[in-house]
Design a protein around this nucleic acid. Sequence first.
DNA 1: CATGCTACTGGACTCCGAGTCCAGTTGTCC
DNA 2: GGACAACTGGACTCGGAGTCCAGTAGCATG
Lengths: 225, 225
Amino acid sequence: MSDQRRERADATRNRRAILAATEDLLTRHRPEKITMEQIARAAGVGKGTVFHRFGSRGHLLMAVMQERAFALNESILSAPPPLGPGASAHERLYAFLDAVVEIVSRNKGLVAALGAALPSAGRSTTDTHCADLPDRATKSAEPSHAATGEARPVYDVWHSHISALIAEERADLDADLVAHVLLSSLHSDPILRLLENNEGHRLATALRAITTALLAMPAVPPSLA
Amino acid sequence: MSDQRRERADATRNRRAILAATEDLLTRHRPEKITMEQIARAAGVGKGTVFHRFGSRGHLLMAVMQERAFALNESILSAPPPLGPGASAHERLYAFLDAVVEIVSRNKGLVAALGAALPSAGRSTTDTHCADLPDRATKSAEPSHAATGEARPVYDVWHSHISALIAEERADLDADLVAHVLLSSLHSDPILRLLENNEGHRLATALRAITTALLAMPAVPPSLA
DNA sequence: CATGCTACTGGACTCCGAGTCCAGTTGTCC
DNA sequence: GGACAACTGGACTCGGAGTCCAGTAGCATG
């Protein structure tokens, strides 16, 4: 039985093909110039299939990103101490920031494209999807992907991780906001350009410096609203 | 005389009308839904005119942003001390960051749209403009706007200002990069959403905290590449 | 193995907006 | 007031995202 039938074999094959084709194209072309039609052709399927599986360009890109970030997101929860649980909050922070910079460096294009592809996430104005694509949104089906179906799963995971670690060490800071600031650098155009130039270490260093400074910060700014 | 003829009166009138119409629309609609045609209609001119004056959607948006930031950019150079020259670097930093948060809060939409509208600035792949629009790029013409014609004039001014101030206080930091990180928060989607919710003060506070921490930072990380 | 149910497929099609073109207009300079 | 060029505007092209639906083929069941 099972109220949810298993995904059909050809569907799985095609989904994989699409994801693979997208990744492949991403390595060879500017992401904003890759069209859905190209992806479909490269994957050997029709455009309709791509949209059927992923709903929109943005969602497809997100799926790819999610795949890329999968390993890291696992590591956070269960991995040897520097990254995984067990080390001190700031050691984990360092390790995680380094890992994130690393992952973004190897996906600049994708990250840039993602930034441009998602209209604004939680808008009311004719936010067509998620409403008329109930089946696709609820898909999941494959254990290997753990598709959460969230709005920005990758960002959210990263953000809450950083935020939690910061809060753990410094309850006096607005951890939530600081985490956003740290992560925002990864979407910044000038910085993405820097990464293209293999200067990722500069970013990593700067983020470390900021983190160190914050955690070591002497006084507690009580709240000067 | 003057190798550059004065801008024609009707041209000026129309340019102003277009700018005004854009600002107006921006206050009432999601920026990504505003089309060039709408702007033209609202300004009472033809679409061709809009493109003739501004070259592209991105450039138009940038022109508007430039106008909005004009006052602040002037203040940096010549204004009473907290903002203008005369105060200590970190006082100026605080003042400037506050001002920037303020200005971005009152222009979230525009900033978001700008982020999405500029493909990537300095790309080689068929970067058509700036090449086939020499006359428009060199326009300037009106003293009141001081149109520099740069790629991202506003961002660049802000960045180099912050960068210089940081460098002045802490030669050991990668001021350039840190400045990018600070500014990047202003383009971040989650943070823009926050600003929409009138939580700008949280951002301002967080940026202050980061700045304070950095400037007060004890050790000098010598360079752990 | 046959048979039905239905999810999946694919490519032609619609829709829409950015940017182009150019014939006509109108400021400006002399 | 005449010539010249810059400006104007709207019809047009181009191209990509997303839709549609008739056809196909997995999967379950007897």
